[in-house]
Design a protein around this nucleic acid. Sequence first.
DNA 1: CTGAAAGCGCTTACAG
DNA 2: CTGAAAGCGCTTACAG
Lengths: 355, 355
Amino acid sequence: MAEQAPTIYDVAERAGVSVATVSRALNDVESLRAVTRDKVMRAMAELDFVPNNVARGLSRGKNWVLGLAFMHSPVRANEAEVEADSLLYTDIIIRGVEAEAARHGYSLLLCSAGEEHPDGIAPLRNLTQSVDGWIVLDRVLSADEVPEISRRTPLVLMAGAGESDSAYTVRVDNEGGISSLVTHLVEVHGARRFGYMSGLNESPDNVARLRALRDSARRHGVSVDDADIISCDWTSGGAEVQTARWLDRRVDLPDVLVCANDQMAIGAIHAMGAKGLKVPRDIAVTGFDDIPIARYLTPALTTVRQSSSAMGAEAVDVLLAAMAGEPVANTTTLASRLQVRHSCGCRGELDEVAS
Amino acid sequence: MAEQAPTIYDVAERAGVSVATVSRALNDVESLRAVTRDKVMRAMAELDFVPNNVARGLSRGKNWVLGLAFMHSPVRANEAEVEADSLLYTDIIIRGVEAEAARHGYSLLLCSAGEEHPDGIAPLRNLTQSVDGWIVLDRVLSADEVPEISRRTPLVLMAGAGESDSAYTVRVDNEGGISSLVTHLVEVHGARRFGYMSGLNESPDNVARLRALRDSARRHGVSVDDADIISCDWTSGGAEVQTARWLDRRVDLPDVLVCANDQMAIGAIHAMGAKGLKVPRDIAVTGFDDIPIARYLTPALTTVRQSSSAMGAEAVDVLLAAMAGEPVANTTTLASRLQVRHSCGCRGELDEVAS
DNA sequence: CTGAAAGCGCTTACAG
DNA sequence: CTGAAAGCGCTTACAG
C-alpha cells in the first residue's frame, strides 16, 4: 500500500538524461529538443511518475495553495444536538472559496481554529509557509494578530470586524440590507416596534446587523426595546428555545422580529406556532441570508439576500490580485438585497390554504 | 507585504549554534541541554521564527495533511439558480472530515474535480505527494483509477460505488434505512403504491436507495411503477419543477413519494401544494438525511436519519488507522434510522392548525 | 540544447 | 551534548 513513488532521478536514469532535463520537460521549457522531451515523457509514463508538489513548492517558493482559516462551529451539543449537521454559513463560504481557487489552479488548505484551542493561532502560524495567501474568517484573528500574519503572507479578512490597514477585507453590506428591510416593514406594514434575534454576540456581522437595525429604526422614528433583543446563537434549535422563553416573559410583543439569519427565523416561527401565534398575522418574522429553502417555508420567509459563496469567490479574487501586486481596494463590500415574501405580512400569488 | 521569513539558519546564527541544534530544539529532542535550548528559543522568539512545514514535510516524508477530493456540485444554474448556495451533502462531509482531521493534528487539503475537467484526475494525482492520505467522495475516481491512486497513497472511498479491494470504503446503510421506512409506510399507513424521486443517476447512493426501495417493496408485495420514478438532481428547485411535470402527467398518484433526499422532498411538497394537493392527506412524502430543518417544515418531514459529518469523521478514523498500519475493516457501514414525523401521515403532538 | 552544481528549509544518521 | 554533512525531490542560474 505504500509503494515508493519514483522521483525525477528515476526518470532521468531511465531516459538517459540529467535531472535538469527532466525538470525542464516537466515545466515545458522552450529550449528542450522535441526528441529529448519525448524520451523523457516516455520514461515518465513508463514509471507512472508524478512530480512531488511539496518539493516543487519548496524550490520555487510557491505552493499553489491558498489557506482558509475559520472558527469551529460553536454549536453546543446540549442545546440542539441535531444542529450539529446544520448548514453553517462557513460551509457555504468554503465552497465558494474552493471553487474560485480551483478555477485559478490553487488548492485550498483548511485550517480550523477553536476558542478552546490551547495555543491560539499556532496552527495558522505554522501553516503560514505552506500557503501562498490566507483567507481568514471572523473571530479567528484578534486585531493585533492581523499584522503579525499579514506581514509575512497576503491576508484577506472575511466577515471581519471591518477595516484593517494591514489586510484586505471582504464583507457584506449589512447596513443596506437591514435598512431596506426596515423601510419596507415600516412603510408597507406600518411596523412600529421591532425585536431582534441575535446571532453570537462576538460575531461582527451580528453586531453590524443589530446596529443597522437600531440606526434604521431611529431614522424612521420607531423603536427597538432592549427587552426584545433575544440573545441566541445562529441556530434553529437555539432560536426555538430562546423564542419560547421570550414569549413566556413578554406579554406585549413587537410588530416584527428581525432575525440575524434565516435558521433562527425558522426556529422562532416554529416556537411561535407552538404557542398558538400565527406568523405574520400575530407577529412578522424576517431572516437574513436567503438560504435556498427560505422560499419553501410556510410562510415563505422575507429575508435579506446575500451570497456567501460569491463572497468567498470575491475573497479569492482579492487575494490573488494582492498576491500579484495589483492594486486592490482595501475593503470590498458586496451588495445584499431585500427579498420580500410572506412572513413580513405581504401576500404572494401563492397564498397558503387559508385556515 | 512580502517580508522574507527567517529560516533555521538565521536562528542558528543568532543563537550561535548549528542548524542541527535549532532543529533539535524545534523537535524537542531529549539530548539538548536546557541552556542551549533556551538560547535557541530566545533567538526564535526574537526573530519571530516560524518553521516551514513544507520543508519539514519534504525532509520527513510526512506532511500532516489529509486530502479530500470531491466532485464539483453539478447544479445547473438554469434550473434553479438560487440552489447554488444550497446545502450540499458534500459540505457537511467536509466539515466532519475537517473537524476530525484537526483533532488529530492534520490539516485538510481540498481538491475538487469536475466532470467538465479536461484532465480528469490530474489534479488529484498531482497533489498525491502533498498529502499523507486521501479521502475521496463518490464519482471522482472510476473503478480502474482507484488502484492507481491507492497503490501510492492510503485511500478511503466515501459514499462510493461499494467495495474495492485496493481501498477502504465508508458508506451509510441505505438498505436498512429504506427498509424500515417502507415497512413503516406499509404497515402503519397501508401504502401499496410507491413513487421515487431520484437524485443524480450516477450517484451510488441514489442507485442504492432506489434498489433498496424496490427490494423492500417486493418483499412487502407492493409496487414501484416506473412511471412514478421521477428523475431529478438532489435539489429543491429541480424537485419543484419535476414534481409539477409529473403531476401534470399522472392522474393516478401513488400513496407515497419516497425522495432520495430531504431537499427534494421539500421541493416536491411545495409543488404539490401549488397544485392543491395536501401532504400527507392526498399523498405522503418522505425524505432522506434528516437535515436540521426537516423538523421545522410543514408538515414536519418523515425521513431517514444519517449523519454525514459522522461519516466524514469515520472516514478520517479509518484512514488514520490504515496509515498507521492498524488492521481496518475493508468496508465500514454507518447506521441510518427512520425518523417518523408527519409527512408520512403520522400525527404528532403538535398538529398543524387544521384546515 | 543540456549537464553539473548549488539551493529551497528542514531532518537525521554519523562522528566526536 | 552538539556539529558537519548528506539527503528529502525539485528548480535554476551558470557553463559549455
